[in-house]
């Protein structure tokens, strides 16, 4: 079943939009999450790992969520009034968002969840220097073909593997990773910007995009970013 993410916003429409955004995000970062909508007055039925609680809807989150991320559970609060941020410290949420939420705020919160649940991320096994490495797919920013294999670029290091880019690509899920050029593979979640010659990523790298696949890459990026953006335009 994976991790459980419960959302309790102040209206059903907001619940629906935020839940959709979280589902889409989970697909992109390759983390198994079940998103559950809670209606006002309802307590979480199962024990969620993260709870997004809208203070505008009244009531207080369950006690189990108060007190920070040591317990492995995250509480995120949101409200229309900025003034509620200070009062929220008594519950020690992992974050506080002001409504209407913007994409970068929600993304910041969700990436905190990734840090706590790093072990739960789906991985791809690679052989490096004779040893097996399990690299979280989320951490794989891009990869490039090298003379004797493929060089993987992750958040913290570069990993040289002997597998060809083609073979490595075949083991990755569609929809998140895209072969943007004969020698390059990109994780669409980390694309920040489409440039005239390629794509710019979170870590500042710029990856070239082949002429033939340019349109495909652009539409895939726009589609992904678009779905994600629409879902959080609350």
């Amino acid at each position: 079943m994976g991790l459980i993410f419960s959302v309790r916003m102040s209206t059903p429409k907001e619940n629906c939009l935020v839940s959709e955004a979280v589902r889409r995000w989970a697909e992109l970062v390759r983390i198994p999450i079940t998103v559950r909508d809670l209606v006002i007055g309802e307590e979480p039925d199962m024990d969620p790992d993260i709870l997004l609680w809208d203070l505008d809807g009244g009531g207080m989150p369950p006690d189990a969520f108060r007190g920070g991320k040591r317990s492995g559970k995250l509480l995120v609060l949101c409200a229309s009034a900025e003034g509620k941020a200070i009062g929220s410290y008594s519950m020690h949420p992992a974050d506080f968002l002001k409504k209407p939420m913007c994409l970068s705020d929600l993304r910041r919160v969700l990436e905190k969840a990734v840090a706590v649940w790093h072990d739960e991320l789906e991985r791809v096994d690679v052989l490096c220097g004779g040893f097996k490495r399990s690299v979280p797919q989320y951490d794989l920013l891009w990869a490039e073909s090298r003379q004797h294999g493929t060089l993987l670029h992750t958040h913290c290091e570069e990993i040289q593997i002997r597998e060809t880019l083609r073979d490595f690509c075949a083991r990755l899920p569609d929809g998140v990773f895209l072969r943007c050029q004969r020698s390059f593979l990109v994780n669409l979640y980390h694309v920040r910007e489409l440039t005239s010659v390629g794509v710019k990523l979170d870590d500042g790298s710029e990856i070239p995009v082949g002429r033939r696949v340019r349109e495909e890459v652009q539409s895939a990026c726009r589609e992904l970013q678009g779905v994600w953006r629409t879902a959080v335009s609350l």
């Binding site: 840090a115 790093h118 490495r133 399990s134 690299v135 951490d139 992750t154 958040h155 913290c156 290091e157």
Partner: peptide
Amino acid sequence: FINWTYKKAWS
């Protein structure tokens, strides 16, 4: 040990 090093760097 390699995976621990990686996770440590990541965190």
